[in-house]
């Protein structure tokens, strides 16, 4: 069953003949429990699209639906992880208070909040770091904190905007596996936007390839790779290489269009 539907989303900036179309027409449906990756060439409006999905930006036309409801602001059952952890974590709060801030508005009691925060921090491997400040930690640990904050919020849908693009390759692989781990342990639908084809194939149940701007859906490919996935063994499989090549060709075609 589709838990999240993007129905003919279009977004343009400006009015009349000067209007610049960023997103032309994007329709995607995420199934319950699915890990869906959206890849596209750089500058194809991935972040714009994700902000529309989260209700942070109103699309020019089309609508985002969760069940029967049209998304106009971020629904309670949705949590976001931004690319730039250093800008989305609050540097004046320690990790625990960063995680508990969203819970306060929900009227969760203080003891319960702390318990939830500690559990979330533990699930991302940050137990015992709760009283440190984000700026005392490495980039990878900061992004773990952002993931913990999203998990403690107990969403049904996790939206991630290039969440691992700002960390080094080693950390990136660790965070990918962390995501697969928490996703497999919770009933969570994940919508992850990335420009990294390997990452998309490695993580996803399904990869949606976007065209260059004005953006539309180019293709949607189901990833049949077995789970649990493994950084070495999965990436050795011929199916992985095949899928990766297929998406790469598709995106390269887009860039070629852009040049001609």
């Amino acid at each position: 069953m589709a838990v999240l539907e993007l129905d003919s989303i279009a977004k343009s900036y400006g009015d009349g003949p000067d209007a610049v179309a960023a997103i032309h027409d994007v329709s995607v449906a995420a199934q319950e429990g699915e890990l869906l990756c959206i890849v596209g060439p750089s500058g194809c409006g991935k972040t714009t699209l994700l902000r529309c999905v989260a209700g942070l930006l109103a699309p020019t036309s089309g609508q985002v639906r969760m069940g029967d409801e049209v998304v106009t602001r971020t629904p309670r059952s949705m949590a976001l992880v931004f690319q730039d952890y250093s800008r989305s974590l609050l540097p004046w709060l320690d990790l625990r208070h960063n995680v508990t801030l969203p819970l306060q508005s929900r009227g969760v009691g203080r003891k319960e909040r702390d318990r939830m925060a500690d559990a979330a921090l533990e699930s991302v491997g940050l137990d015992g770091h709760g009283h440190k400040y984000p700026w005392q930690l490495s980039g990878g640990m900061q992004q773990r904190t952002a993931i913990a904050r999203a998990l403690a919020y107990e969403p049904e849908i996790l939206l991630m905007d290039e969440p691992f693009a700002s960390v080094d390759a080693q950390t990136r692989a660790e965070l990918e596996d962390l995501l697969l781990d928490v996703w497999s342990r919770r009933a969570l639908t994940v919508l992850l936007v990335t420009h990294d084809i390997d990452e998309a194939v490695y993580l996803a149940d399904r990869v949606v390839v976007l065209s260059k701007s004005p953006t539309r859906v180019k293709e949607s490919l189901t990833v049949e790779l077995p789970r649990p996935r493994d950084q070495i063994r999965t990436k050795e499989l011929p199916e992985f290489a095949h899928m990766r090549a297929q998406i790469f060709a598709s995106i390269k075609e887009e860039s070629a269009h852009a040049v001609s």
Binding site: R51, L56, R73, T74, L80, F82, S88, L90, P102
Partner: peptide, 26 residues
């Protein structure tokens, strides 16, 4: 930083709480 405001909005922080806990400290 607009990312902070997006963060506050995405976690449904009320306007009042956003001002006290996010805007003022920032």
């Amino acid at each position: 930083d607009p990312v902070l405001l997006d963060t506050a909005a995405s976690f449904q922080l009320s306007r009042r709480r956003t001002i006290w806990r996010v805007v003022l400290p920032a």
